[in-house]
Design a protein around this nucleic acid. Structure first.
Lengths: 211, 211
DNA sequence: TTTTGTGAAGGAATTCACAGCA
DNA sequence: TGCTGTGAATTCCTTCACAAAA
């Protein structure tokens, strides 16, 4: 039975959310958790938790709850975070540097195998994580050689679309874009645009004086 | 007529999205834009654009479209980005530094007035943007003195909830949290959790080999 | 009894399709 | 004619409420 095609996007986002407290519970030796408790930890409705999980199988035991370790393993399997992913980053400014050095990515299996910048003054600099910054002209070659699957963009906005196209032509399957423009992907390639100012504007709207 | 209470959250997010290409259009001397073209630039449905805008008034001209300058002004008024917002940041690691130095925030009126870190080695360091890092013990005092409205958190995860509580007690109205934990806000205070790894896991799910 | 898994109900957001106006 | 503004239809997601199972 393949239900994959009808799974709501928000469900996927929440699976990632559920895995965070589950990791803590596992570390703290908690063996079993109910949908009510997990929901509470994540700030969602308990029925939501059960329904989200039920899309993928029957992971719980009625009258008992979910085995923490099993559930975490299942979620990781579903999200494919039980394996390593090959990433590259383009644009090593303050933000790009913070991303490439970020331990959270590494801990979850997201490994940066290459870092690019178009600024000749940055090329050949060695990053704290050990990577050497390569010129943007090497993107296609290295993405192919290293089998990079996800490209992270932290360039200035005016370069972001060009870099996106280049990465996609080179074979990456998805783009995580931090440049403050909406980049477009040709069909078949996935793009996530992360714009911090959009989040701030959202907050500002809700706390501002009413119109 | 106050429709504010029934406005969908996604509508607010999209208003921020619409404003980006509108700024470009304005810079390029484009005077008028149709919902179809704006929708195309943002990757949404044209009816969506019209409906979103219609929640707040009648900004367009039938048969013509929307005046770019007027529309942008209206959106900025709605989102309250036609004024300045006082921010502080807690946690000056790589990411915190990248955020506080980020020109995009400044350009949109989000001004960091204070930066905090609990690491004594960082305290008193002067940042590129001119701010001096203050000890976390000064949070309450400075947030009050500077009338800081939004707190940005870029601490390690285990400190994030404590810092959240402190900021809220000190009077901030909203929190933008970059620490990879879901922080909880007591009632009345707004929190946005931005977790990059959640975005990556979302991408990974969609490009992985099917289960 | 407790808690899952799930059909049904309810609610929310998107898209359609067209009336209304320039 | 061309494009907005909007009720109606549709789609999508969440929550309820309870049967089934341990």
């Amino acid at each position: 039975m393949n239900k994959t095609s009808k799974i709501p996007v928000p469900t996927i986002e929440r699976l990632a959310l559920y895995s965070r407290p589950l990791e803590n519970l596992l570390d703290n030796g908690v063996l079993v958790i109910s949908s009510v408790k997990l929901a509470d930890l994540c700030g969602v409705n308990p029925a939501q938790v059960r329904k989200d999980l039920a899309y993928f199988g029957e992971f719980g035991t009625r009258g008992v709850g979910y085995d923490v370790q099993d559930l975490l393993k299942e979620i990781k399997r579903i999200l494919a975070t039980d394996r390593e992913w090959a990433l590259c980053i383009v644009g090593i400014g303050n933000l790009g540097n913070a991303l490439v050095e970020n331990e959270n990515f590494r801990k979850r299996g997201y490994k940066f195998l290459a870092a690019f910048d178009s600024d000749p003054r940055k090329v050949n600099r060695v990053l704290y994580c050990g990577l050497t910054i390569k010129p943007a002209s090497k993107i296609t070659q290295l993405v192919r050689e290293l089998h990079i699957e996800i490209g992270v963009i932290a360039t200035p906005p005016f370069e972001a679309q060009k870099v996106t196209n280049l990465l996609i032509d080179s074979g990456v399957k998805a783009i995580l874009n931090f440049a403050p423009v909406q980049v477009r992907a040709p069909e078949g390639c996935l793009v996530e645009n992360v714009d911090f100012t959009v989040r701030l504007e959202n907050l500002a709207y809700h706390i501002r004086e009413p119109l």
